[in-house]
Design a protein around this nucleic acid. Structure first.
Length: 424
RNA sequence: GGAGAGAUGGCUGAGUGGCCGAAAGCAACGGUUUGCUAAACCGUCGUACUGGUAAUAACCGGUACCGAGGGUUCGAAUCCCUCUCUCUCCGCCA
C-alpha cells in the first residue's frame, strides 16, 4: 500500500511514477479525501477534548452533591455531534483506503521504463544452450517414457492441470525440494518454516493478492479460507501487525504447494508441466532494514541462481520493465531456464523488492538503530518453482536412448542413481 | 461438538464506572559509582492519528487504543451483547 504522506507531500513525484506503470488512479481524489478527513478529525478531537473536560467536572460536582442534569444534557448533544463526525471520518477513510489500495508500487529509479514483457532487459546469461546430435524430445514425451508422471489419470480425479507424479518422478520432486531447502538453510543462512496452506481473507489482503486476484485463487466458502497461490502469502504474514523485536534481516525459506486457477490462460504453453493449477515451490522471504533492501535483492537473486548453477542448468536473468512488474514490486528480476525440448525459456523464479509496500499494508515494523519504529522492507523470490525445473532437468539431461542423466548435486537425494532409464 | 476459565504495555501481573495510558516487578536504554565484570543508585522506557512551533530531526498540545466489533453512560480497561483466539475437562477423530 501507498504511503498517504508521500502522496500528500510529493504528489508530482507519485504522478510521474504511476505514469510509467499505466496506472489510471487519480491522485487528486485521494488528496481531496485526505483534506476532508483531517478537517473532520481536527473538529472531532476538539469536541472530544471539551467533553472530556466537562465529564471530569461532572464527576467533581457530583461528589460535591450538586445537580448536574442540565450540564449532562448539553454534553449528550456534544456526544451526538462527535458520533456523527466519527462516522464521517470512517466513511472518508474507507473511500480513501479503497483508492489507495488500488495504487501500484512506484518503480525504483533503476527500473527501465517500458510497456510490457518485450521491454524487459536481459541482465546476464549463464551456461550455454545445449545442442544435441538428435532431435531433443520435450518433457512430456521423456517423462511418460520414464514413468515420471501420469497426466491422464490425474485429470480423471482432479481435471486438467493437476499433475500426478509417479515413482521416480515423485522421488525427483522430493529430491529437488530437499536439495533446495538444504542449500538455502545450510549455505545461504535461511531459516526453514512450514506454514499453513490455507489462509484467511485478511492474510490474502496483507500481501496484496486480494482484492485484485480473487478470480485466480481457490476459495473454500464454508470456512471463508483461500488456498495459497505462493508461500509468500503465509510467510510474509508471519509478522503481520507486529513490531519485530528480533534483529534484521530475517531470512525465511518455505516449501509449500501453490494453487492457482490460472483463469483464462488455457491453450498455449500449458502442455504437461509448463502451467499447472497445483505445483510445489521453495520460496525465499526476507524482512530487512530499509536502507539495505536493494543489496538484499541482489543477494536473493544470487541465492536462487545458485540452485540453478549447482544443477548445471542454463539460465538467464531478466530485469522487468516498469510496465511488466507486478502490482506490489518496486524492482523485480525473473529467472528463466533454457529448455531444449520446449525450445524456449521458462520462468522458474521471480525475485522482487517490495520496499515498504507490503509492510505498510500488513503493518510489519521494527525498531531501527535510533529506536524509532518504521516499516521494514520485504522481499521474496522463488528458490525455485518445481515443475518447470523438472522440465529443464529432463530436457537438458536427455540422451539419445531416452534416458536422462541427473545433475550430480541431485544424486545423493536420488538414492545415488545417476540417471533415469525408460521403462521396458 | 459440549461445559468452564481467560485475553491489560517487550514479558510477568495489579486494576470492577471519573483520582487509569494504566501500579509493581523483570527486560531494555542513558547516566553515576567502579581496576574489569557484576551489583547498587538515578533517570528514560507503548502505538497510531492529528494540531502548532519548526519544514522531513526536535519540541509542545489534543485524540484514540487495555483481543476485535457494537451497546449503555455526561464519562468505560472496568457494565451489557456479538465474534475471534488461548487454556482446562468431556466427546469424536486422523
Amino acid at each position: 500500500m501507498f504511503d498517504i504522506k508521500l502522496i500528500r507531500e510529493n504528489p508530482d513525484l507519485v504522478r510521474a511514477g504511476l505514469k510509467t506503470r499505466h496506472s489510471p488512479v487519480d491522485i487528486s481524489a485521494v488528496l481531496d479525501l485526505d483534506e476532508r478527513r483531517r478537517a473532520a478529525i481536527t473538529e472531532g478531537d476538539r469536541l472530544k477534548a471539551a467533553r472530556n473536560e466537562i465529564s471530569k467536572k461532572i464527576g467533581e460536582l457530583k461528589k460535591a452533591g450538586q445537580d448536574t442534569a442540565e450540564i449532562q444534557r448539553q454534553t449528550r448533544e456534544m456526544g451526538e455531534k462527535i458520533a456523527a463526525l466519527d462516522a464521517s471520518v470512517r466513511e472518508i477513510e474507507e473511500a480513501q483506503r479503497k483508492l489507495v489500495l488500488a495504487i501500484p508500487n512506484l518503480p525504483h529509479e533503476s527500473v527501465p521504463s517500458g510497456e510490457d514483457a518485450m521491454d524487459n532487459v536481459v541482465v546476464r546469461e549463464w551456461g550455454h544452450k545445449k545442442t544435441f546430435a538428435f532431435p531433443p524430445k520435450d518433457h512430456v514425451a521423456l517423462g511418460e517414457a520414464l514413468g515420471l508422471f501420469d497426466f491422464e489419470r490425474a485429470a480423471r480425479m482432479s481435471g486438467a492441470g493437476f499433475p500426478l507424479f509417479t515413482g521416480p518422478g515423485a522421488r525427483l520432486e522430493r529430491a529437488l525440494i530437499q536439495f533446495m531447502l538444504d542449500l538455502h538453510t545450510a549455505k545461504h543462512g535461511y531459516t526453514e518454516v512450514s506454514p499453513p496452506h490455507v489462509v484467511t481473507t485478511a492474510t490474502m489482503t496483507g500481501t496484496g493478492q486480494l482484492p485484485k486476484m480473487a478470480d485466480d485463487m481457490y476459495h473454500v466458502p464454508v470456512d471463508d479460507l483461500w488456498l495459497i497461490p505462493t508461500a509468500e502469502v503465509p510467510v510474509t504474514n508471519i509478522y503481520r501487525e507486529e513490531i519485530i523485536r528480533e534483529p534484521l534481516p530475517i531470512k525465511l525459506v518455505a516449501h509449500t504447494p501453490c494453487f492457482r486457477r490460472e483463469a483464462g490462460s488455457a491453450g498455449k504453453e500449458t502442455r504437461g508441466l509448463i502451467r499447472v493449477h497445483q505445483f510445489d515451490k521453495v520460496e525465499l522471504v526476507k524482512f530487512v532494514p530499509p536502507g539495505t533492501s536493494y543489496d538484499e535483492l541482489e543477494k536473493l537473486v544470487g541465492d536462487a541462481t545458485d540452485v540453478l548453477e549447482k544443477l548445471g542448468l542454463t539460465y538467464r536473468v531478466l530485469q522487468l520493465c516498469s510496465g511488466d512488474m507486478s502490482f506490489a514490486a518496486a524492482k523485480c528480476y525473473d529467472l528463466e531456464l533454457w529448455a531444449p525440448g520446449f525450445n524456449g525459456w521458462l520462468e522458474v523464479s521471480s525475485c522482487s523488492n517490495f520496499e515498504a509496500f507490503q509492510a505498510r499494508r500488513a503493518g510489519i515494523r521494527w525498531k531501527n538503530a535510533e529506536g524509532k519504529t518504521e516499516f521494514v522492507h520485504t522481499l521474496n523470490g522463488s528458490g525455485v518453482a518445481l515443475p518447470r525445473l523438472v522440465v529443464a532437468i529432463l530436457e537438458n539431461g536427455q540422451q539419445e536412448d531416452g534416458s536422462v542423466v541427473l545433475p550430480e548435486a541431485l544424486r545423493p537425494y536420488m538414492g545415488g542413481i545417476d540417471r533415469l532409464v525408460p521403462k521396458k
